[in-house]
Amino acid sequence: MRVHIIAVSAGGPTGICFAAMFPDRVASLTLQSAVTKPWLKPQDKEYKLGRHIFKPSVEKKTWNMIALINNILPRTTFKLMLPSFSKLRFSEIRERLDEKSLEEFRKMNNRQRSYSGFLIDLEQSQTDYTNELRSIRAPTLVQRSKNDSVVPLTHVEQAQSCIPHAEANVLDS
Rank of each mutant, 00 (worst) to 15 (best):
A67C: 09
P139W: 03
Y129N: 01
F90H: 09
M1Q: 07
E59I: 02
L97P: 03
S116K: 06
K60C: 05
R25T: 08
V3R: 06
N71F: 06
A10D: 10
S135I: 12
L31H: 03
V58P: 02
P13K: 12
D121H: 07
P56F: 04
V156W: 02
L29K: 12
A67N: 05
L102V: 11
V142G: 08
V151A: 05
E95G: 05
A19P: 04
I72Q: 14
I16T: 10
T14Y: 13
T36I: 12
A7L: 05
P83I: 05
A34L: 01
F18D: 00
A19K: 12
V26D: 00
S91N: 06
H155L: 08
P139T: 13
E95P: 04
V35M: 06
Q43A: 04
A166N: 06
I69K: 10
L29C: 02
R51P: 00
I163P: 09
I93D: 04
V58F: 11
H165A: 10
L97A: 01
M65Q: 11
Y115K: 13
F22D: 00
A20M: 04
Q158K: 10
H4S: 15
I53C: 04
C162M: 15
K146W: 01
V156E: 00
T30A: 15
S101K: 02
D98Y: 04
K100R: 15
R144V: 15
K60L: 06
A166I: 05
D128M: 14
V8D: 12
D24M: 11
G15W: 09
Y115C: 00
Q124N: 13
S86I: 03
L97Y: 10
N131H: 11
F18I: 11
D148S: 08
D172G: 05
G50P: 02
K61L: 06
T140L: 10
A10H: 10
A19E: 03
V170F: 07
H155C: 15
L80N: 13
L141M: 15
I120C: 01
F54C: 05
S161G: 07
W63Y: 15
L122N: 04
Q43N: 05
E104P: 01
K41F: 06
T30C: 14
L80Q: 15
A166F: 06
